[in-house]
Amino acid sequence: MRTHMSILSFMALMGATSAHAADTTMYVAGFGGDVEKAFREKIVPPFEAKTGVKVVYVPANSTDTLAKLQAQKGRQSISVAIIDDAPMSLAIQAGLCAKVEDGPNSKNVYPSAKRANGEAIGLGYGATGLVYNTQIFAKNGWAAPTSWKDLEDKRYAGKIVIPPITNGFGLLALVMEARLNGGGENKIDPGFATMKRISPDVLDWEPSPGKMAELLQTGDAALGVWGNGRVRAMLMQGAPVKFVYPKEGALMILSEVCPVQGAPLPQQAQAFIQYLLSPDVQAIFTAATGLGPVNKETKLAPAIAADVVYGPESVQKLIRTDINTINANRTAWTERWNREVEK
């Protein structure tokens, strides 16, 4: 059973400014880029001011943070780890995450952002769906895509871009195609059969976000599979693209946070996680990442809310995959993909 952190104890810890706290340094690993900037400029300073705890932010991608936690097992320096859901599952399986205590903000988190055993909790929702170039579609008189089945429409032959299976978006597309054709994570053959049909019409299986954005912006690619956060970033730069939540559903992407097992400052780590889940910090995280808030009480400006997963109706439309089954089969699927799909 998880330890309950009451509002009073949370506020007491947040308000601690003792000489001991002033000398305390806590390491937090998370994403780089705009996320790192938001943490350094907007998220960390208020927490430091309220608690006297110095927070050192360590930027890295999820796989690198996971590797660091694995290498330091038993002698951890990082107290809080922010990782995407698939590598987070591996971290949990390796015993690298302690349980998240119940608290004043975690109680307002949507159920789909919570782990069954509480070893991690979501920070932001993303969606994997379709993206298209609005100018190319308008020029050709094509209606906007609405379905995963549109990837099999011959009108788009040679104009489709999809990340490979080594990229999370491509992997989720494979799983979705399996689900739509009588299979799923435990029966992946229908997914491979569909991807093999689509493959001749794919311009590029592109792993690089930068190159993916370039192909979509120039119109070399008219249609693709991508995340809503990536598309939002392109829109903010003026690109003629739009994200589509397919009628069959979009696949959930979840960035998560966990207190690291056996790491220094466990109480401060729990307080920091509750702080990250507060409505105000959730709004900052959403603005920096394009990932929708997991706290039901978060309020977003209309311009931001329109481009992210926001509110119970949007959250309920997301399809959550069986990450443990995916992780267990990832190597075998990758080898098969290289033989059958991306030849």
Rank of each mutant, 00 (worst) to 15 (best):
E101A: 00
G52N: 03
I198R: 10
S6D: 14
V281Y: 00
V58G: 00
W226N: 12
R336T: 10
Q217C: 08
T194R: 14
P293S: 13
G122H: 07
E335F: 10
F137A: 06
K343C: 00
T25L: 05
A250K: 02
S112C: 02
V55F: 12
L90S: 03
K242F: 13
G33W: 08
F285G: 11
H4F: 01
T17K: 13
R320M: 15
V28L: 09
N108S: 01
A16C: 06
E256I: 05
A116I: 08
D220Y: 02
R197T: 13
K296F: 07
K42D: 14
M26A: 07
L8N: 12
G74K: 14
S255I: 13
V257N: 13
P302E: 08
P45G: 09
A38F: 01
E342C: 14
G290V: 01
D102R: 12
E340D: 15
G182Y: 02
Q70H: 00
V294T: 04
Y156S: 09
V244N: 03
P145Q: 05
D204H: 06
P266K: 15
V257R: 06
W333G: 01
T218K: 10
L174M: 10
G95S: 01
D85F: 06
K50W: 13
D201C: 12
L265F: 13
T65Q: 03
T331Y: 10
R320W: 14
T24G: 09
E313T: 15
R336N: 10
S18E: 09
A29I: 07
E101N: 14
A143T: 12
E342G: 06
S106N: 12
P200L: 08
G158E: 03
Y125F: 15
S77F: 07
Q267F: 01
E214M: 05
V315W: 02
D280K: 14
P209R: 02
N327A: 07
D280Q: 15
I284W: 10
G126Y: 10
L277H: 12
D150H: 07
W148Y: 00
V309K: 09
L300W: 10
A91N: 03
M26E: 01
P266H: 03
L276P: 12
D23C: 10
G219L: 01
P46I: 13
K68N: 11
M1W: 04
K317G: 15
N133Y: 08
L13K: 06
P164K: 07
F137C: 04
L215E: 14
V315I: 13
G170H: 11
G311D: 09
L318N: 00
R197M: 08
D201P: 03
K139L: 07
A157I: 08
S147W: 00
P279M: 01
W337S: 07
T24E: 14
M5Y: 12
G227T: 11
A263H: 02
A127N: 09
C97W: 00
L171Q: 13
P264D: 15
T134D: 03
Y27F: 05
D84F: 03
K159E: 14
T166W: 08
G126T: 09
E256K: 13
V175P: 05
R2H: 06
K343S: 01
Q76D: 07
L172F: 01
F169E: 08
F272Q: 04
K68L: 04
I188V: 05
W333E: 10
P46G: 15
Q316L: 06
M14T: 01
I136K: 14
Q268L: 11
I92N: 04
L223V: 13
K154P: 05
E256N: 15
I78D: 06
V56Q: 14
L90A: 06
